[in-house]
Amino acid sequence: MTAKISIRGVTKDFSVRDHDEPFTALHDIHLDVRTGEFLTLVGPSGCGKSTLLDLLAGLTAPTHGEILLDGVPIEGPGLDRGIVFQQYALFPWRTALANVEFGLEAKDTKKRERRERARHFLDLVGLSGFAERYPHELSGGMRQRVAIARSLAFDPDVLLMDEPFAALDAQTRETLQEELLRIWEKTQKTVVFITHGIDEAVYLGQRVAVMTSRPGRIKHVLDVEFEAREGDLRADARFGDYRHVVWTLLRDEVAAARQEAPVG
């Protein structure tokens, strides 16, 4: 498989007020994401996961190094990537349907086609009956479904997800994880999924990239292979093994992160 995203020697420094020394969030990151792959990224809190996502989204630029998308350096945000945020980021004055249409408006899609596509993707996330509801009339899980539909609707190649299920209760989270896998298989998107949950990372990812504590680096990339991705994956003996490997990799980093004063 070819690399969809290629992160090459990326370092990100931030200047901090009242400090001469810049704050290094990410240090010399190397990572390739294959076309159509589901890659999860785990790391202790404050390791720069979200910074990496901002870089992939083109919302900020790396201090050193470069990120290639289909071999071309990322120079800004674009509709070839869709982001799903932890806090949904739905527009509260728009209905579910109008929220899903948002990205299509940015793409200057005609109104009729916009409606149609938006309905199709609301349907895909199981919210056909809620098109005219406003975000405040929906539960957290439903809001995140709308957000996912919104990101899929304008048909990006890459889906960037920043701890999208972290704010949901355990049951809703599991349901949405399953559905996300279903949608991924159906749409063939390349997914970069950030999480701090080990179970989630192992359950969703074909590969799990483990990050170090600040400054964030890629510590290890683990291939996760199951015979079949059906049934109760979490009960699979190999799930436990993978989980343990990631846990061991993370343990030292979490300890290291605790030593530091929490920044960012």
Binding site: G78, A89, F102, F154
Partner: peptide, 22 residues
């Protein structure tokens, strides 16, 4: 909400449309 601005900006919305739509 800065997140809404970020969300719209991530779609590559130019400033004037960001203003109008968000």
């Amino acid at each position: 909400d800065p997140l809404l601005i970020k969300s719209a900006r991530s779609l590559g919305l130019p400033a004037h449309r960001l203003f109008q739509k968000v």
